[in-house]
Computed example of a mutant assay.
Amino acid sequence: MSRLLFVHAHPDDETLATGVAILHHVAAGDDVHVLTCTLGEEGEVIPADLAHLEGAEGDPLADHRRGELAGAVSVLGVTHHFLGADREGDRPTYRDSGMVGSLAFENPRAFAGAEFIEVAEAMRVAIDGIAPDVVVTYDSEGGYGHPDHIRVHDAVRGALAENPSAPTLFVALTPRSWVAEDRAWLAEHVPANSGYAVPASNDPVAPSVVEDDLVTHHVVDPSVVEDQQDALRAHATQVVVFDGWYALSNDIAARLAGREGYARLDPTTGDLVPGDGRVRTGLSGART
């Protein structure tokens, strides 16, 4: 049995970005943990009856999303932690930063604006306390460029760098060929009158989409998609879930394909660890 830690910026990231790997390794009997760094106070609320939570004084969306996260964690079957949580309110030290240039980014508690050394040390304490064999997080661009995601990546690297006994570090990456396959699938399965856009084959891709040979580890397990959908439904303010696909507040359809890609990262240099031409299955036993 391996102990895996998935480190994420906001509630819902755990299920959206790494839900397949989490559920796969839970089913395999591994000890799986999730560390969340903020409560997603700047999330865009989708349901009209909850719209009053968005941007409201006192951050009521934070407590609501904490409840959503608890529901998702229950489905995923993981042990959950908040970064720097106090003992009374179980609230993270840091707040969702929003995007660069927003008012949220200037908040004194903004995660991306906090002193890096402070955040990296908090991350080191959290990782040491959990003592995982494997740590999983975003690539250097945070998947799609969100400053909190980038801060998570950098803080995890800072916590693990120059430590020869550090756990193996993985970052989530998507093979370019998978994107093409997923867009073709969406074009066939998302109803034309659904109100949701389907990305065209030539639309831009996220920074985490890379050439196939850079993705050295695959977690392919379609059997977990139903549970991943249930976990996403817990995040009702942020995600609308359909059969095999979902949409965020941007109303763009995305596939739930039951597969995720990863590659090892050297935390000291920030470089991907080259593969040997073989694609590995799963993330446990990664030291070998």
Rank of each mutant, 00 (worst) to 15 (best):
Q238A: 11
H235I: 04
R124K: 08
A62E: 04
E41V: 03
W178I: 04
D230N: 12
A236F: 13
V179S: 00
P167W: 06
V100T: 15
G113R: 14
D154R: 15
V135N: 05
N193P: 01
H25E: 13
H8C: 04
D213V: 06
A56V: 08
T38D: 14
E68F: 05
D266F: 07
A253I: 04
P204S: 06
V73A: 15
Q229F: 01
S102G: 10
A247H: 10
V279H: 04
A253V: 01
D271S: 04
F82N: 10
G77L: 00
V239D: 11
V78W: 03
R255Y: 09
M99V: 08
P191I: 06
D12V: 03
A28L: 14
V171T: 14
V209A: 11
A192M: 04
E54K: 13
T168C: 08
V20C: 03
L103W: 07
V152H: 09
Q229R: 10
L53W: 09
A192E: 15
E226L: 15
V20T: 14
V134S: 01
A72Q: 11
D13E: 10
L50D: 01
L23G: 01
A254H: 13
A187P: 12
A231T: 08
L4C: 12
H52Q: 10
G77W: 05
G261P: 09
S201Q: 14
S102W: 07
V136F: 07
A104F: 06
I46G: 02
V32W: 03
G55S: 08
S165H: 15
G282W: 03
V78Y: 06
V156D: 11
R233E: 07
L4M: 06
E260W: 05
S74W: 01
R183N: 12
E14A: 09
T237P: 11
D276R: 12
V198Q: 11
D203V: 05
L23V: 02
E162T: 03
E44P: 00
A120K: 00
S2C: 13
L103V: 10
E121A: 02
D31P: 09
A206M: 15
V135E: 06
A70C: 09
I252M: 11
G145C: 09
A234K: 07
V220P: 03
E68D: 01
T216K: 08
P108E: 00
S140E: 15
D203Q: 07
V73P: 02
I127W: 02
S208C: 15
G55A: 07
V279D: 07
W178A: 08
A247S: 15
F111S: 05
T269R: 09
A159Q: 02
E68W: 02
C37V: 07
V78E: 12
A72N: 07
C37K: 00
P267H: 01
D148P: 12
H81M: 03
V34T: 14
D276T: 13
A28F: 01
E115W: 09
V134G: 00
D243P: 06
